[in-house]
């Protein structure tokens, strides 16, 4: 984990964060007591072997999953105690995701894939503008199946940046 020390505000803070998965007969310990702080304006790269818990940590930071124990806060708000509804709102207004496999909705065009996010966000960008930012202004009406892997990835990035005009936090995962 690399951290760019800055004097600006702490965005994420975790304390003794653990995550266990119960896989039937087997129990998998994905995170063991993670302590970290992430600051505003910081670019953080998380590296690790497969199965080391990168996705798990990002899922918890992004409000997609909840920790088994420990604490995680976003701008001082305790995410570990948030209800399902609060987590949904958190994801809707503060988090942008670029998924490992993009998770584009195959029945929607590039523009609509971005609109799915902007339609429920506060003060979002225009979907077309977000796509222009990633150089896809000519592919607005293409369905995912008509786009290359790289183009699909760019749609996923446009989708993540479109909802937040003043970027608060973008969690992204891409492991190959």
């Amino acid at each position: 984990m690399s951290a760019n020390i800055s004097t600006s505000t702490i965005v994420f803070q975790t304390r003794q964060l653990t995550k266990r998965y119960d896989m039937g007969e087997v129990q998998v310990q994905a995170l063991r007591g993670v302590d970290m702080e992430l600051y505003s304006g910081e670019l953080v790269v998380l590296l690790g072997a497969s199965g080391s818990g990168k996705s798990t940590l990002l899922n918890i930071l992004g409000g997609l999953d909840v920790a088994s124990s420990g604490q995680v806060s976003y701008l001082g708000r305790d995410l570990t105690r948030a209800t399902d509804k609060e987590l949904t709102e958190y994801r809707r207004f503060y988090v942008g995701f670029v998924f490992q496999f993009y998770n584009l909705i195959p029945s929607l065009t590039a523009l609509e894939n971005v609109a799915v996010v902007t339609e429920i966000a506060r003060q979002p960008m225009q979907p077309a503008a977000a796509l222009a930012l990633v150089g896809l202004q000519d592919r607005l009406d293409h369905f995912p199946a008509q786009l290359s892997g790289g183009q699909q990835q760019r749609v996923a990035i446009a989708r993540a940046i479109a909802k937040i005009r003043r970027s608060c936090s973008v969690t992204s995962q891409r492991v190959r």
């Binding site: 399902d84 949904t88 994801r91 998770n103 996010v117 429920i120 989708r159």
Partner: peptide, 9 residues
């Protein structure tokens, strides 16, 4: 899952 991640309840 994606829709939920984007904030659909």
């Amino acid at each position: 899952a994606a829709l939920k991640a984007f904030g659909y309840g």
